[in-house]
């Protein structure tokens, strides 16, 4: 194995059901239902999935949902903005903890 991540492994996702078929079936049924058109369109759900894929930094998900977003009619501008939303929330989550740091530092300081 040259790398831990092989793009071909994405196509083997269903093999996860080999030793726990009932759990896999429940997961894949749920997964399919989640991405079906509902109050949100399939296109909107794919954009959310792409953003989350970047947040969890999953290369399989980034591969799958880049294609899915394009095939649902999103463009690169929308997809790039979605990744910036991730970045803003991740960066913001770090930065907002600075308030905690400041509170602790103020308590400790003269």
């Amino acid at each position: 194995m040259e790398t831990y991540y092989d793009p071909k492994d994405l196509g083997k996702f269903s093999e996860i059901g080999k030793d726990a078929p009932e759990l896999a079936a429940k997961f894949f049924d749920y997964y399919g239902a989640v991405f079906a058109e509902g109050e949100l369109t399939e296109r909107e759900k794919a954009l959310i999935a792409l953003a989350v894929a970047h947040a969890v930094q999953c290369p399989y998900c980034i591969d799958a949902y880049t294609r899915a977003c394009l095939e649902k009619g999103s463009n690169l501008g929308e997809m790039t903005e979605a990744v910036h939303v991730v970045n803003a929330i991740r960066g913001g989550a770090s930065l907002v903890h600075g308030v905690q740091m400041r509170k602790i530092a103020e308590k400790l300081s003269l």
Partner: peptide, 17 residues
């Protein structure tokens, strides 16, 4: 037609967009 090696968006949603 898609701008690359991927399938087209479903017609209804694409027309709306």
């Amino acid at each position: 037609n898609p701008a690359g090696a991927f399938l087209p968006a479903p017609q209804g949603g694409a027309e709306k967009k």
